[in-house]
Amino acid sequence: MKKNKILKKIKLRFTLNGEPVELETLPNKRLLDLLRDDLNLTGTKEGCSIGECGACTVIVNDKAVNSCLMLAGEINGSAIITIEGISQNGNLHPLQENFLKFGAVQCGFCIPGMILSAYALLNKNRRPDEETIKEAIAGNLCRCTGYKQIIEAIKNTKL
């Protein structure tokens, strides 16, 4: 039935954490796998593979998205930011500082996605209220923290 399917490699050009990237990859690869396997950016995590947990959240063209629900081809021409790309000149991003300061991190598996959801929010809305923050991270499941210290960390971040 499914014999001799030839997969045509696709060429991609995009910026990743501010740097231009050009590469070839398989057409049935998810963005998540492109990041983790091809580019060795393992800060992006896989928790559910169906866009429910948010552990794989990255920023595509300023918007938070689930990288498990995108094919690599879809990012052609886009600007991608992953957790590895938000520190500036070796300094932690203010969100990262606050996640530490407010005790927002326990096991840490959801944290990259959580921080990126918050990052996308704050870049659009510098002073979000608590409800807005909760809505912005509702797609990022955390089983450890109960979210309270995460919300505090975001609320107290000044960009």
Partner: peptide, 23 residues
């Protein structure tokens, strides 16, 4: 007193290595 986690920095930067991050 409130003390910042020792493994925190690795976790907020995505550098912390979980099982599937080992290759």
């Amino acid at each position: 007193k409130p003390v910042i986690r020792q493994d925190g920095k690795a976790k907020v930067t995505g550098q912390a290595k979980f099982a599937d991050d080992y290759k």
